[in-house]
């Protein structure tokens, strides 16, 4: 799960950075008269770190760019369940509030007046996907639900006084028999 990954990675890297600062802070009061060797060692570390970050980060970055939510809207050719979504102050208008697991749901999201953000939360209130809702534009988000249940749609772009209470429900049922047979 990306949230956990982001959290753990942040904690580890921030922890390493903190350790480096504490290490140096604790030794700041000692004094070496000739700083030149220390400085050239630091430059070496800087060089190594630079290349290490580059070598690790580049493949990670390329990997994360393989499956972007934008592209999948275009290449997923299976038939989708289309839900038209219009954000209003302060409610979601959905063309249907029913969907089923297994088949991609295509949310075509726009807004009546101001910007909103469509955030899809599962029954444990975990955010599973989102897309912005902007007037005059339609943003298309494809998401395939893997768990049935009642999902909540929250607003993720500040839209005025009732922003926090702009909540709708989406009922995601088990796959229909036809669906199951086809898969």
């Amino acid at each position: 799960m990306y949230q956990t990954l982001a959290w753990q990675l942040s904690l580890i890297l921030m922890g390493v950075l903190l350790a480096a600062f504490l290490f140096v802070a604790l030794r700041a009061r000692d004094r070496v008269e000739d700083a030149a060797p220390l400085i050239s060692r630091a430059y070496r570390i800087r060089g190594i770190l630079f290349w290490a970050i580059l070598v690790v980060l580049t493949p990670v970055m390329l990997y994360t760019l393989i499956d972007l939510p934008y592209a999948s809207a275009g290449i997923d050719r299976r038939e989708a369940q289309v839900i038209e979504v219009v954000g209003k102050q302060w409610a979601w208008d959905l063309s249907t509030d029913q969907a089923s697991v297994g088949t991609p749901v295509e949310f075509r999201v726009t807004s009546a007046a101001v910007n909103h953000g469509l955030g899809i939360y599962d029954e444990d209130m975990r955010l599973v996907a989102q897309v912005m809702a902007m007037p005059e534009y339609t943003n298309t988000l494809r998401h395939t639900f893997s768990e049935p249940g009642t999902y909540k749609l929250l607003c993720l772009e500040y839209c005025g006084m009732i922003h926090h209470d702009m909540i709708a429900e989406l009922k995601v049922g088990a796959a229909s028999e036809e669906e199951t047979a086809r898969d």
Binding site: Y2, Q3, L5, A6, L9, S10, L13, M14, L17, L18, M61, T64, L65, D67, L68, P69, Y70, G117, G119, L127, V128, A129, Q130, L156, E157
Partner: peptide, 21 residues
Amino acid sequence: AGVIPAIIDATVVINQVMHNT
């Protein structure tokens, strides 16, 4: 330290579940 979670959130696939949280 702040740059770390910022860069992580600049990853599109992570941003999709963390943006505006």
